[in-house]
Design a protein around this nucleic acid. Structure first.
Lengths: 157, 157
DNA sequence: GCATCGGGTTTAATATTGCAACCACACAAG
DNA sequence: CTTGTGTGGTTGCAATATTAAACCCGATGC
């Protein structure tokens, strides 16, 4: 079955999904961005099998999303923290959150809202802006071929 | 294996992933937002097995992301188009795209850039703003419990 | 009416997930 | 120093999902 890899795809969406598009990775990253760092914390929070957590953490480290730091509090164990590349995923988490807030069938089951830490007020919706500041919807955008210096493998959009 | 469902989770990120967080759904949605509508178009573009495409399309329809429209051009076949709920996923696709643009190891393999349809200029990066217009990073936000009218099932973040 | 195409379903092989049991090490107590 | 316990995994096996390939069937096409 071989879980067809998207790594060589030329579509940036596919490339991102290839890195953390599986069932658990984004949840691990979410937890990490909430400050969880220890194997046990992730396991307790997510309720996933330990072997799966172990492999997910390993591949996220390999891919530069997480890094292990040798200690933190006294004990000589290691912890997992986000790299800059991992922190860069934050907008994606926000986008997912906001989609649920807007479209979920049972919004009453959503436990938390994201607020501005200073003021404690809800954040605004992510908006896509053009260079001159207009708000863009999907229909207002197009894809253009990159000036491209090297060939890319697959040519889907 | 049973692919533990996240449907009852109280975290909005998990709830979103429960709907379209599997290996193919987001790519199908991406294709749909690029205007692909026919089974064969998706299959050719994604190169996935037809049975999987069939089940994915079916569940995406069930979940209100896609709907089938009876025709379009002459033939009496059906097509798949995004619902408003499906169009709402667009910012997530943009976020994924921008993450790859910023952090991918081989940016030269990225084929396309997203531009403003009017001016043809690249769009700006998605920004998270506070009510008073400041740009917020992950560290500038917190989660707050919702005023909550009904209980939610699990209490992870 | 015969072939072909689009749009799937069925089948069998293979890979991944999940659970539970097991293991190794660190640290603490006796 | 020997036992005990918690953390952080690894290993095996059964359950399930993915995949490719073969098959199906109603619409077109000719």
């Amino acid at each position: 079955m071989k879980r067809t890899s998207l790594a060589g795809d030329s579509c940036p969406v596919a490339r991102a999904l290839d890195v953390f598009g599986d069932w658990w990775s984004l949840l691990i990253i979410r937890d990490a961005s909430l400050g969880r760092r220890r194997f046990g914390e992730f396991q307790a929070s997510l309720g996933l099998a330990k072997n799966i957590l172990a492999t997910r953490l390993r591949t996220l480290v390999e891919r530069g999303i997480l890094k292990t730091v040798p200690a933190s509090d006294g004990s000589a164990y290691q912890e997992y923290v986000l790299t800059p590349k991992g922190h860069g995923i934050f907008p994606i988490l926000v986008a997912l959150r906001q989609w649920t807030e807007e479209f979920d069938e049972h919004p009453d089951e959503i436990a938390t809202i994201m607020v501005d830490r200073d003021k404690g007020k809800p954040v605004k919706k992510l908006a896509l802006l053009s260079q001159d500041g207009r708000v863009l919807g999907a229909a207002d955008t197009t894809l253009k071929l990159r000036p491209a210096r090297k060939a890319a493998r697959r040519v889907s959009a």
